[in-house]
Structures are given as structure tokens and as C-alpha cells.
Design a protein around this nucleic acid. Structure first.
Lengths: 216, 216
DNA sequence: CAGTTTACCTGATGA
DNA sequence: ATCATCAGGTAAACT
């Protein structure tokens, strides 16, 4: 089963710095529904993606196009914040593995797989419940509704506020990396710093964000 | 097979700042033999402890009781010096892993495992050769012959010189961390600073030390 | 470059 | 049902 790409409008990339209350979830969902999303890419999730490796490989071509890592973020990776259609926040560590020359979502991914029942054994049920997400031969699609990919000011989207959607889920590239990397005395992972959209309206406070939508 | 705890006397915690000559080994060993040691704790070494992970997990309760890391040493860890019954010095990096919330001996541990044949496959032989060390169901015991655990002056052992024994091996908490942490641009690990035993006699120079004995 | 070391991470388990 | 612990992992830098 597949997504249909929706065209992007100027809907604000609603900030989700903290798990928003239910009311916000609804608002977010409606906004997303009203917005057409720009298709990013599909990926057929492999058994490894939902297996014990606890990581999702992002095909290099797509990763470099939509989630580039510059020199400052290559080492530590990024902490990307997502939310599913119900507004539930998901945070995945995104980084590059030199050993395998591949881009991956690591920390947090396994929890997502588990909750969404992305398991090879549960393919049928899962596919049934979550037609937009995946298993084996079921395509995972990324649709873009924002262009936060380039951390460099020069590469930023010109004006209209946009939003990144992965599997139809809002992606936020939180400028503040917090909680998960809260070891005492440790420096938090530096999240991808995004430029504030020029015409964005409802982004919470001053934090620059991108968001990725998981259509679940 | 197990240790029997031996009561501590006033035997000097002989300093082993550098690998002592054989003559010193014998003296050390005799002195240790004459000293009764206060039991610290046991740990049944797991397959992971002697496997490819190159680390020994120190159960938190014991770690915090006997090898506390204060704020200055938590980040970088400590360089602990041990010696086996033959007097051979062993140095292990001891630190806290935020991610797993656990205390571990890392650097140097694998060499010890290798030399002492602490391998799951060698259980029988090893147990035979080294009854005081471990594998799976064989307990590893820590016996204390000194109370160097608390770096705080207020918590120091009152008078008699003592010694810490791990697996019956002398443990030194070298006040000087050197050579092994010589990576470029890296600050040397701050070793656990111990108070000088009030009545210790033969501790070399002025360096405060604790020692841990591995009965091997 | 192969092995070591550091620093991450997670599932199972039990209180 | 949580939550802390730890056995068992991985990735990447370093030697």
C-alpha cells in the first residue's frame, strides 16, 4: 500500500519541543491534513531494518539529498524528532556509519518498530493496521513538506515554511538536544541547526525546527 | 573455591609505583600473606566479562562502596593499579558508563583475561589453575586489607595501613595517572586520590595508594 | 590494517 | 506497571 504525495502549502511547521497535549495533537493533525506534502522517497523496509540490528538504513542517495550531515554533525549525528499521525513524538538518532558507508536511524528506532509492530512475523497484521508503514515488500515512503535538510544558511529554503515528512510523519530537527543524551557531565548531541523559516507563523518560540511526519 | 577473609593487620601497603623487581615481589607476597584481609565482595564473572567486550562490570553497589568516583573523576575515570600474587602489576581503567549506568574496568582488563586464561571455554582448566578466580558459577571474591575506598579525608581509614584486595590481588589506586592515557590532546585520567595511611611505613615516597590483591 | 579501547545502546530481569 | 541494573551488544577512534 502506498502514500499519495500531497502538495506542500505554507502550513506552519508546528513546533513540538515537548510532547504536546492532546489538543495540540489534533491541531497538528488537522494542519498536516490540510497541507499537501512534497514526496521525498520510499524505502522498502528490510528484515534488518525491523530486526535486531536496531537501525533503519536510509538509502544514501536519499539521505544525502534530504538529510545531509555536514562536518559539524557527521561525527555526532543528529537527534531527529518525529511524530506519528496521532501526534506521538518519536526521536531517532540519525548518523553516518563509516564502516558500512551508510546513513542510519539508530537510537529510538527499535522502540518504534516494536510499538508499530514492524516485525517480520507480524507482517500481515501490521500491514493491515498501518498500511503506510512497511514490511519487506511494502514500501515506506518519505514525503517532504519542508526543506530543512541543509543546515547551512546558504542552503536554506528561501521563504515559505516547509515540513519534512518521513512515512508521512512530521520531522522536527530540534535545535535543542535534550533528555535522551542527559548523561551527567556529558555534552548533548548537537542537533541539526535549522534556519527559522522566513514566513513561518506557528513555530513555537524561537527554536528552529524541521518536522517529519509519519503517516501512521 | 573461595577465599577466606583474612583480618587486616598493620602491614604496610607496599607501594608499587613501578613494576617492582622480583625481590620486592617476594617481600610483597610475604607481607600480604601475613596480613589478614577484610572481605570486600564477590562477583561471579560472566561470559561477557571474559569475552570480547573487554570490560569487567563492577556491580554498582560494590563499585560505589569501594571505588567511588567523585565529580572530578566521574568523567574521565580512574587508572587503578593491581598486582597478582606473583607481584606482577596490572593496571585497569575504571570508569562509569553513563549509557548503561554501570561501573566498569576497561583498558587493561582484556590482557588480564587473556594471560590468566579467563575464558569461558577454559573454565575447567582455569578454575583448576586459578581457583580464586572465576568463571560462571565460580565466585570471584574481593577481600579488603585496606580501606582506601573513600577519597574524602573524612572517610579515610583511621590509622592502620590497609590494602584492598580484588580476587586476592593487591590494588593500588595510583595518585599519578600517566603513560597509558597519552593520547594526543587528551588529559590524563585523574586517578583516585587516596589519603596516605597514617601508619603506613613502606609506601614509596609520598604517593598515596591503595592496593588490591588478586589471589592468582 | 587488525586488534584494542572508548563510548555508546538495549533487552531481560527482578525489585 | 515502573524502574534500576547489568549482561550482552555495536560503532568508531585510536594504536
Amino acid at each position: 500500500m502506498e502514500f499519495t504525495a500531497i502538495r506542500a502549502s505554507t502550513a506552519a511547521a508546528a513546533g513540538c519541543s515537548s510532547p504536546p497535549p492532546a489538543a495540540d495533537h489534533k491541531a497538528e493533525e488537522e494542519a498536516a491534513g490540510a497541507v499537501e506534502k512534497e514526496h521525498m522517497f520510499d524505502k522498502v523496509v528490510t528484515p534488518s531494518d525491523v530486526g535486531k540490528l536496531n537501525r533503519l538504513v536510509i538509502p544514501k542517495q536519499h539521505a544525502e539529498k534530504y538529510f545531509p550531515l555536514d562536518t559539524s554533525s557527521t561525527d555526532k549525528g543528529l537527534l531527529l524528532s518525529f511524530e506519528d499521525r496521532a501526534g506521538k513524538p518519536w526521536r531517532f538518532r540519525y548518523s553516518y556509519w563509516n564502516s558500512s558507508q551508510s546513513y542510519v536511524m539508530t537510537k529510538g528506532w527499535s522502540r518504534f518498530v516494536k510499538e508499530k509492530r514492524l516485525d517480520a512475523g507480524d507482517t500481515q497484521q501490521y500491514h493491515h493496521q498501518h498500511p503506510s508503514l512497511v514490511l519487506e515488500s511494502v514500501p515506506v515512503r518519505m514525503s517532504m513538506a519542508a526543506a530543512p535538510a541543509h543546515p547551512e544558511p546558504s542552503a536554506v529554503a528561501t521563504s515559505g515554511s516547509k515540513r519534512v515528512r518521513l512515512f508521512g510523519v512530521n520531522l522536527e530537527c530540534a535545535a535543542d538536544a535534550e533528555e535522551d543524551f542527559s548523561g551527567p557531565g556529558r555534552t548533548a548531541t548537537t542537533a541539526l541547526q535549522l534556519l527559522s523559516p522566513a514566513s513561518s507563523s506557528s513555530s513555537s518560540s524561537g527554536k528552529a525546527r524541521c518536522s517529519l511526519n509519519l503517516d501512521l
